[in-house]
């Protein structure tokens, strides 16, 4: 028996005034601990859909349910990682990560301390705990944001092109690391990108979007083809390359998909 879906998009459409951003209707069921990538051209409504999960936008029609509960507003069970402004410049690395727990009354100070150390370690920032974000690399700044959402106790990570501003090498490192963290900490992730390689490497399932208004054009089951473990060797394999080419075709079709 298949497990009950964890995160459900049910009959979603979104309009900003007359502007149709998400075409009626978008439906998707996400399993717990699934890594979903929203892939599509920039300026399509995929980010808007992701923001709805965060409670930062409300759907014009339909609703999104997390564990059966309709999402109404942001809360710390759904953490955000942005491409830029992803950490606070006035806090040190450790303080930024600890900020994720600032409003948690269920944790004792000792417990917070232990969690802070744990997540700094997990994202490899222990040695930079007392640095300010402007003194560390762009890749480290994104790690701060990831660690913050983990420390906050988010079950769902919403990532809006988080590695978009990084160079190729750092990008690859962080992708491997993110996948590892996701497996280890059992997180559900919705990751928005327009980079096909990144999508194929990270995803369990890719949703390919059209240009605005966003509609789902394809659904590609990557987990079935590549399995859960994503390594550098995989990235250079024939299997990966084939899959990537296939997805790229869909994306090209999406780009040409005019109304």
């Amino acid at each position: 028996m298949a497990p009950a879906p964890y995160l459900v998009f049910d009959g979603i459409a979104k309009y900003f005034g007359d502007l149709e951003v998400v075409a009626p209707t978008f439906d998707l069921a996400v399993k717990r601990n699934e890594f979903i990538v929203f892939l599509g051209p920039s300026g399509s409504g995929k980010t808007t859909l992701m923001r709805m999960v965060g409670g930062l936008e409300t759907p014009s029609t339909g609703e999104i349910r997390l564990d059966g509960q309709p999402i109404r507003e942001p809360d710390r069970d759904r953490g955000m990682v942005f491409q830029s402004y992803s950490s606070f410049p006035w806090l040190t690395v450790a303080e930024n990560v600890a900020y994720g727990m600032k409003y948690r009354l269920d944790l004792t100070p000792e417990r917070k301390e232990a969690r802070l150390a744990h997540y700094l370690q997990l994202v490899g920032l222990s040695d930079f705990a007392d640095s300010y974000p402007n003194k560390v690399s762009g890749g480290m700044r994104q790690r701060i944001a990831i660690a913050r959402t983990l420390a906050a106790g988010s079950d769902v990570l919403l990532m809006d092109e988080p590695f978009g501003a990084l160079d190729a090498q750092r990008r690859e490192d962080l992708q491997i690391e993110l996948r590892r963290i996701q497996q280890q900490d059992a997180k559900t992730i919705i990751f928005v990108t327009h980079d096909v390689d990144e999508a194929v490497f990270l995803a369990d399932r890719i949703i390919v979007f059209s240009k605005r208004p966003a509609r789902m054009l394809e659904e590609v089951d990557i987990a079935a083809a590549l399995g859960p473990d994503r390594t550098l060797e995989l990235r250079d394999s024939e299997r990966f390359f084939k899959l990537r080419t296939e997805v790229l075709k869909f994306v090209r079709a999406a780009a040409g998909h005019d109304n």
Partner: peptide, 14 residues
Amino acid sequence: PQEYVEIAYTVGAR
């Protein structure tokens, strides 16, 4: 930046 505001809300700030 709007991002800062949204970070606060998504870690549970009032």
